[in-house]
């Protein structure tokens, strides 16, 4: 197997996509600076960066609101997913009943039901948090269910022969065996959580990055719109990185395989 070039295991970054993006950004800058595309249609990367720096103080309170909603919703989604997945795994009839419903629920576009939440739950944190929960719940639940169902039956039999009870089996086998699935679900949901929070804010209220973005868009401050996008992307990547860090700590046996 080819060794990665970076010797530092923790950083291990492939430089190729970074070079590629850097070239794209330079091209973009040139295209705007040469007025091939007008700056009010597409702001130059340099003006996005300066907008980001100049308006960061303005954005900060919105960032905290969006992140707060995302984190609360994400945690609620994790707890809910674990409860539902374990119930479905341990009681066959519950799985048979709920599984198709959960799958179908994902076909409902969140954006279309989001406005209803404003009617039902008002303009505070609650409707936004509910949207984050709805967005994050599915990937975690499905990956947990798959993980729980794919545990080696022979291993379960072996533990039963040793007198293991239901709870022993979950504690000793099912939960640890499902951790890799759980984390891959978390990584998908984690990145969705920020986005879910932003979508929730589009519907109503006056705080959060989603609100802020609508406002700067309405005033045609496109550099600020892009600055907001950059912040949302960075936040999502931040969530992903935190989950990856916890994943490594939680599964030391995986790391040593490399």
């Amino acid at each position: 197997m080819r060794r990665p070039r970076s010797t530092n295991k923790f950083i291990e970054i492939d430089m190729l996509p970074i070079f590629f993006v850097a070239i794209l950004i330079i091209l973009w800058e040139i295209v705007v600076k040469l007025h091939i595309i007008d700056a009010f249609i597409l702001p130059a990367p340099s003006s996005v960066v300066s907008a980001l720096i100049n308006t960061f103080d303005l954005m900060w309170p919105h960032i905290t609101v969006t992140v707060f909603q995302a984190i609360v919703g994400f945690i609620v989604a994790i707890i809910l997913s674990i409860i539902i997945a374990v119930t479905m795994d341990s009681i066959a009839i519950v799985k048979r009943t709920l599984y198709p419903i959960i799958i179908t629920s994902q076909a409902v576009p969140i954006v279309t039901i989001a406005p209803l939440f404003a009617i039902w739950f008002g303009f505070g944190y609650l409707p936004k948090i509910i949207i984050v929960v709805l967005v994050c719940f599915f990937p975690i639940t499905i990956s947990l269910l798959e993980g729980l169902a794919s545990v080696d039956k022979e291993l379960l039999n072996l533990l039963k022969s040793m007198g293991a009870g239901r709870w022993d089996i979950y504690k000793l086998v099912k939960f640890p065996a499902t951790l890799p699935n759980f984390f891959s679900g978390l990584k998908i949901s984690g990145t969705y959580s920020i986005m879910g929070s932003v979508i929730g804010e589009w519907v109503g209220g006056n705080m959060g990055l989603g609100r802020y973005m609508l406002r700067v868009r309405q005033s045609y401050a496109n550099d600020r719109v892009f600055a907001t996008i950059v912040v949302i992307v960075l936040l999502s990547i931040g969530v992903l990185k935190i989950i990856q860090f916890i994943e490594k700590k939680a599964m030391p046996w995986q790391e040593e395989k490399i």
Partner: peptide
């Protein structure tokens, strides 16, 4: 809970060290 068996597959849990694996019956 009286006799246990061993398979062709070792059925050791990849997330437990060898010591942690073999002590499972005692923990149970």
């Amino acid at each position: 809970g009286r006799i246990s068996y061993m398979y062709q597959k070792d059925l050791l849990m990849p997330w437990r060290t060898i010591l942690e694996n073999v002590s499972i019956p005692l923990i149970l």
